[in-house]
Amino acid sequence: MAAPSEARQRRRFGQRVLTDPARLFQHNAWDNVEWSEEQEANARRKVQENSSQLLPQEKQEEYEVNAKRYWDDFYKIHENGFFKDRHWLFTEFPELAPNRSSSQTGDSLHEFSTKEESKSEGLGRCENGHCSLETSTGSQLSLSRSTPGVCTQEEHRELQQRGGGFPGAAASYRVLEVGCGAGNTVFPILQTNNDPGLFVYCCDFSTTAVDLVQNNAEYDSSRCFAFVHDLCNDQSPFPMPEESLDIVILIFVLSAILPEKMQSTVTRLSRLLKPGGLMLLRDYGRYDLAQLRFKKGQCLSENFYVRGDGTRVYFFTQDELDHLFTTAGLEKIQNVVDRRLQVNRGKQVTMYRVWIQCKYRKAATPRP
């Protein structure tokens, strides 16, 4: 029997490689799966087919004007039941948990992986074109309908006007998650990182999503500040000043905005980073399962689609993301494609996912 440390290493999320095709259905997911030329060609053909018919311009404008309503409706329907706890979070982004509490050690991450293995059904699911990333473990964030003592947006503005600083002003390590949804990244960070100087900001376009975060029983206004924010509106203020953040997190959020607004969004977010600060991204890659499943009539522009529920999604290449970040003045630390083969062992079905993961850093000293 392997020692516990050896077992943890063997099960570590992101390091499971399929070397024997006969073992395909022994696990729920295999990492870094190579695609054949035929598979790549088939994917290109499917994308050409489903993007051959673009939505009329007036319909596209309707989706842009009503974008907030579509996301509000999404979270009213799913609350926190669609996107599950992100087991991969601290493996892929250890920067988010530099100081773990005794109850959230490596054994806890091992426990997540064990739960992930134990499921007989495959990873992920797709609803209305939303393809979730994680296995459903049955553990969901605990919601409380009682309203905790949180700082409202009006109170925050009043505080600033009185010269009282900003939320988290006394913190030594500040993290912002953009597009926080129901809090499936924010709360694991707060639970796992016991750094007394940590303060986490989180925002979302959807008022419903922010309400879910603020009404969560684990929301702690002394360590976290949730607020509604429109990334695409340059006049929408952030609650923190420029060059005040150590990390900005973008997890499956940049893909949801208009491609022509992505550069200004990344540039604006980069200004919030301290010198040496990091921007962390994980998002949809070109030819992901979700892109291949779209039908004709759902394409807005090249590699940009609208789902059945009115929300939108873009599928990136590494070069596109590198251009966005470097144009914003950030330096590349990591830019990798994660090709994962997910397996439904019960139905003997395979699903090929393609995600891109990036880490870009703001220069510690200004460029000449």
Rank of each mutant, 00 (worst) to 15 (best):
P56E: 04
P56L: 02
E58A: 08
E58Y: 13
E58W: 11
K59R: 15
Y63E: 02
E64S: 11
E64T: 12
V65D: 13
N66I: 01
Y70A: 10
Y70W: 14
D72V: 04
D72Q: 09
K76E: 14
H78N: 12
H78G: 00
E79H: 01
E79S: 01
N80P: 01
G81P: 01
F83W: 11
K84C: 02
D85Q: 13
H87I: 13
H87G: 12
W88D: 15
W88I: 05
W88T: 09
L89N: 09
E92T: 09
E92C: 05
P94H: 02
P98I: 03
P98K: 04
P98Y: 07
N99T: 13
R100H: 03
S101Y: 06
S101P: 02
S102L: 11
S102W: 09
S103L: 11
S103G: 09
T105W: 03
H110F: 05
F112Y: 01
T114V: 15
E117R: 13
S118F: 01
S118H: 06
E121K: 10
E121A: 10
E121G: 06
G122Y: 02
G124T: 06
R125C: 04
C126E: 09
C126A: 07
N128G: 12
G129P: 04
G129V: 03
H130P: 02
H130M: 02
E134Y: 04
S136D: 14
R145N: 11
R145Q: 13
R145D: 14
T147M: 08
T152F: 09
T152G: 12
E155V: 08
H156F: 07
Q161A: 13
R162K: 14
R162G: 04
G164I: 06
G164A: 11
G168Q: 05
A171N: 10
Y173S: 07
Y173T: 02
Y173F: 14
